[in-house]
Simulated scan of single mutants.
Amino acid sequence: MSVANGSPYDENNIFARILRGEIPAKKVYEDDYAFAFHDINPQAPVHVLVIPKGPYVSMADFTANASDALVSGFFRAVGEVARQLGLEEDGYRILANAGINSHQEVPHLHVHIFAGRPLGPMLSRGM
């Protein structure tokens, strides 16, 4: 079982439930390693989430505990989603939050793909 910050993976988080088909999602892409779908509260004209097929809380958890095939397949899926959506020419941003200070809202590793307009600076400069 994956653990992050001392807490075990929550099998009932929304992304785990989406992977099990208990909650619908507007699918963009799926393979043996990943599932990609449109965010229900988009922060850009294109806002897609890509999640690995497995119980991983964060990037650190994922890269420490997933098989090499899953890690490789997941990152290939992120690239494939960007290609299929035609995001290469104008550009896109990939973001993965981990933990409280990053404002991770769902305790399942997920990568956001943002595109469709100029996105501005990556972080606010205020401290």
Results as ranks from 00 to 15, higher is better:
3 V>N: 11
4 A>Y: 02
4 A>N: 00
5 N>I: 07
8 P>L: 05
9 Y>I: 00
10 D>F: 03
13 N>K: 10
16 A>M: 11
18 I>T: 06
18 I>L: 08
19 L>S: 07
23 I>S: 08
23 I>C: 10
23 I>V: 15
24 P>L: 07
27 K>M: 04
28 V>A: 04
28 V>D: 04
31 D>N: 04
34 A>E: 09
35 F>K: 00
35 F>P: 02
38 H>A: 11
39 D>E: 05
40 I>G: 09
44 A>I: 02
46 V>K: 01
49 L>Y: 04
55 P>F: 05
57 V>G: 03
60 A>P: 05
60 A>W: 05
65 N>K: 12
66 A>R: 00
68 D>N: 14
69 A>N: 15
71 V>H: 13
71 V>L: 14
72 S>H: 12
72 S>F: 13
74 F>W: 02
74 F>M: 00
82 A>S: 11
84 Q>W: 09
84 Q>N: 10
85 L>H: 05
88 E>R: 11
90 D>H: 08
91 G>D: 12
91 G>A: 14
93 R>G: 03
94 I>H: 06
94 I>M: 11
95 L>I: 13
95 L>E: 14
97 N>M: 03
98 A>E: 11
99 G>S: 07
101 N>R: 07
101 N>M: 10
103 H>R: 14
105 E>S: 07
105 E>Q: 08
106 V>C: 11
107 P>F: 06
108 H>C: 06
120 G>A: 13
127 M>E: 15
